[in-house]
């Protein structure tokens, strides 16, 4: 009976192992960087989920393994987004600025602490460093089709899900 619950909870335990491994690897081996720590920890959690499922399964082994790995992958994907939210989401950063202020902030005060200039500078540096765009004679150019292709896929998904190309339409 207990084994049955172990099988059910294997992906959740796998996720816990993923989170712990990611935090440990990022804190203690900072040279590997955030993205690599996320991928490495995902793989650790993936094998942990597979091991826990195989070790406890008595019947329908393949079907249960596939289901558990799908659950684990979905949870791992959510964890990746959770990290990404903390790293890049404007809403989270604004919440944090208001939280740190203690007494709330006016729109002008929010913009003094966090604004389009800071947002674009960070991302432009990243895009230029990754050779996705170039900056020449005071102008920006597309340097690689990869980011542009990703942007177009996102626009296509917006069209499918929301029926519009941009939130401002």
């Amino acid at each position: 009976m207990l084994r049955q619950y172990f099988i059910v909870l294997a992906p959740v335990i796998g996720l816990a192992i993923n989170v712990a491994s990611q935090i440990i690897s990022f804190r203690f081996f900072q040279h590997i960087g955030l993205l690599k720590s996320i991928f490495a920890a995902f793989i650790v959690g993936f094998f942990a989920t597979a091991f826990l499922t195989l070790y406890n399964s008595l019947s329908d082994l393949t079907a249960i393994l596939i289901v558990n790995l799908i659950i684990y992958s979905a949870l791992g994907y959510c964890y990746f987004h959770f990290i990404n939210l903390g790293e890049t989401a404007r809403r989270i950063r604004i919440l944090r600025e208001i939280y740190d202020s203690g007494s709330g902030l006016s729109m002008n005060e929010i913009l003094e602490r966090y604004n389009a200039k800071e947002i674009t500078e960070k991302r432009l540096n990243r895009l230029i460093n990754n050779k996705q765009i170039t900056y020449k004679n005071g102008k920006y150019f597309i340097a690689s089709p990869v980011m542009l292709a990703m942007a177009r896929i996102m626009v296509f998904m917006k069209l499918v899900l929301l029926g519009k190309r941009s939130e401002f339409e």
């Binding site: 674009t120 102008k139 920006y140 917006k158």
Partner: peptide, 24 residues
């Protein structure tokens, strides 16, 4: 998908200007 990502907005605006490039 709901909100436009800043990188996406930047890339699409730059791409929209074609070979002329987007002035800073």
């Amino acid at each position: 998908i709901e909100a436009d990502s800043p990188s996406l907005v930047m890339v699409l605006n730059i791409a929209g200007t074609g070979p002329a490039g987007l002035d800073k």
